[in-house]
Design a protein around this nucleic acid. Structure first.
Lengths: 160, 160
DNA sequence: AGACAACGTTTGTTGCACTAACGGTTGTGG
DNA sequence: CCACAACCGTTAGTGCAACAAACGTTGTCT
């Protein structure tokens, strides 16, 4: 009976967030994630791109040509969604999609010169956006934040 | 020409995530958030609850009876969604919804004894789930993680 | 040969964040 | 007093991301 405010005023003034909610990592994560998502999505839209474009291009750049299935596994994008992403990338001449002569089930996706260039541009854009996203954190804190996220994500992807 | 693997093997073996993606906080956030969301949602489902139930009950417990609009502001739930949440809570006798005699536009929502009890149970459930969610982190790291999240979220809710 | 798995694709489902519009009510300015 | 804006709760609907199901095609294994 000592913790709750049960005074006469039932309402507003300062509509503050309950303490319980400010302590739950799950809630903070989902709230922050939607803000972050919106920021990134809008930022990339001005470069005529989506975050999945970046994921696919980055994967191609770092690991070389790959099949759509391999791309799906590396980026976490579902194959069903990968189709559309690659359609858009092909449309923009950022990648090329050709049949694999050794395995006619597969397509081989290759990044183009324009694709590499576009990837560099997107890197710049994302650098700026992340500066905005992580603005209140010092460089050291940003690194630790990323490290904690990676540890958590690794843990939850292994046991899936 | 020196960084990409352009060997003969075009494909799998170890479908690892590109480095670029492992460094972007936005991506880590959204990936982790979906895992976390699923974990919490499934866990709460076994207690016949959703995360929004918790948010509403917590807000009522900490700040006392309130109108639906006030609840919306405090929890971040949209009024349009609040309707359904409260319907479910009323159905379970966890809250009571009555008209405000002083302002006939409003409803006054009050948490019931059962509601308080249910909230305690949910706290226990969430404690367990967060133990699972934050498993790889030490207690100190968990605290710092939550603090960083709060700082970021505060920053991005002020400037909205 | 035949069973089975992987590939790319289409289609559809679910849940969430969010917008738009509504009738009903209140407070405000003139 | 009365027009008018602002707020309330509610309904309906949009857009998008994460995912599931099924398909025909192609490769692999025995």
């Amino acid at each position: 009976m000592s913790n709750a405010e049960t005074a006469d005023m039932p309402d507003d003034g300062a509509p503050k967030t309950p303490d319980r909610l400010r302590r739950r990592a799950s809630r903070l994560l989902s709230q922050l994630s939607t803000r972050s998502d919106r920021l990134i999505t809008e930022g990339l839209a001005q470069a005529d791109a989506r975050k999945w474009h970046y994921a696919a291009l980055a994967s191609l750049q770092e690991y070389g040509p790959a099949s759509q299935a391999a791309l799906s596994r590396r980026t976490g994008i579902f194959s069903s969604d990968m189709v559309g992403v690659l359609n858009e990338l092909v449309e923009r001449d950022l990648v090329e999609r050709g049949p694999d002569p050794d395995d006619r089930r597969r397509n081989i996706i290759t990044i183009s010169a324009q694709g590499r260039l576009h990837l560099l541009r997107l890197d710049k854009v994302l650098d700026g956006l992340h500066d905005e996203l992580l603005a209140p954190l010092s460089p050291a804190e940003r690194d630790q934040f990323v490290e904690l996220l990676n540890r958590l994500l690794d843990h939850h992807t292994r046991s899936s």
